[in-house]
Amino acid sequence: MNLQMIFAGFGGQGVLLMGQLIAYAGMLSGKEVSWMPAYGPEMRGGSANCSVVVSDEPVGSPKVEDADVVVAMNKPSMAAFEKSVVPGGLLIYNSSLIDDKPKRADIRAVPVPVSEISSELGSPKVANMVMLGAVAKLTGAFSAEELVDALRHKLGSAKEGMMQMNREAIDRGMAVAEG
């Protein structure tokens, strides 16, 4: 495996956490991983993005330019990173906030209405977990259990109360991606 991913959106959408959880899940399954956030002026206007690499080999560049997977949580992110997807790669986008259609025909674009789903679940905060479930499913990289483990690892036992909701969100994301 050598999965190069970019997660992008605006601050508060949990974009950096999504990337970290994928990296954690990779680490917990014995892979080599890196997580590199954009910082400083790249984050101007409240946008956030990070590069994640999950690989069987030691990671080369931690900054992803040719992404197997781009996750776009808002419109500016899709505009900025659609071009970074390798031909045949995957663009997963938040269709709750992005009404444009991706322009490229040589990639696989999957809309996921994460805001609607998370609202149905009763917590808009878990939109990123819905997306994470979809990402895991579409890439086939991780199971729901592995993501929940990663979440536990990252957040610690103090947040155990939130696990059920997060698990539901991940499951819904996976189900949507399948359908």
């Binding site: 991983v33 890196s34 997580w35 590199m36 956030p37 931690p62």
Partner: peptide, 10 residues
Amino acid sequence: DGIIGQMMEP
């Protein structure tokens, strides 16, 4: 450099 400082790795 900024990458070594800011990135996360195992």
